[in-house]
């Protein structure tokens, strides 16, 4: 089983050797390992999943099952800017659906997708916990509250303008 014939990706597997060394003998740490792997690679490349399965003495099916169960894990790279749009109850009541429509229309993508230029990814999230600022979105850790559709578009356009100016 050592010689993986996986030809789809060639990730640098040495990057996670420390993580694997630390956790491979700790039962039940698959989720933690995947979290660390995602921190390293930005997402979970297929060859990394396969490598983790080998090292953790489990099967790729098992790892894939876990990786696709939890919303935190991504199997595809994300854009430079990750928009996390809150879909919590408070945000919903205050119109998050309209914000989503506006963003989707502006970027030409839907939830979970990345723009062709690799700039933006959109992800609906359950609740960012800033209910009093609703509706809220978070872009790369920065929170934007009390959104309107127009304000959301302006924020995105602002980022595009900043990128163009670089």
């Amino acid at each position: 089983m050592k010689n993986c014939k996986c030809s789809h990706q060639t990730s640098d597997l040495s990057l996670i050797s420390n993580v694997l060394d630390e956790y491979k003998n700790k039962p039940g740490s698959l989720i933690t390992v995947l979290q660390k792997a995602q921190e390293i690679y930005g997402y979970l490349p297929t060859d990394v999943i396969y490598h983790i399965a080998q090292e953790m003495d489990t099967t790729p099916a098992e790892v894939m099952g876990v990786a696709t169960f939890y919303t935190q894990f991504r199997l595809k790279p994300v854009g430079k800017y990750l928009i996390m749009l809150c879909q919590g109850t408070a945000c919903h009541v205050n119109g998050s659906e309209r914000i989503e429509s506006a963003i989707c229309q502006r970027l030409g993508i839907s939830d979970g997708d990345t723009t062709d230029d690799g700039m933006f990814s959109l992800k609906n999230v359950a609740c960012l916990g800033c209910c009093s600022l609703s509706p809220v979105m978070m872009i790369n850790g920065e929170t934007y509250g009390s959104l309107t559709p127009q304000k959301a578009i302006e924020i995105i356009d602002g980022i595009y303008a900043k990128e163009a100016g670089k």
């Binding site: 989720i31 933690t32 876990v66 169960f69």
Partner: peptide, 26 residues
């Protein structure tokens, strides 16, 4: 501390246990 990975169902105690064991939170 065990950080969850995003699944509401893991608030259900047996699903939480599955998740703690590194499995799908079913």
């Amino acid at each position: 501390i065990k950080a969850g990975a995003g699944a509401f169902v893991c608030g259900e105690e047996t699903a939480l246990i599955e998740s703690l064991e590194g499995k799908r939170g079913m």
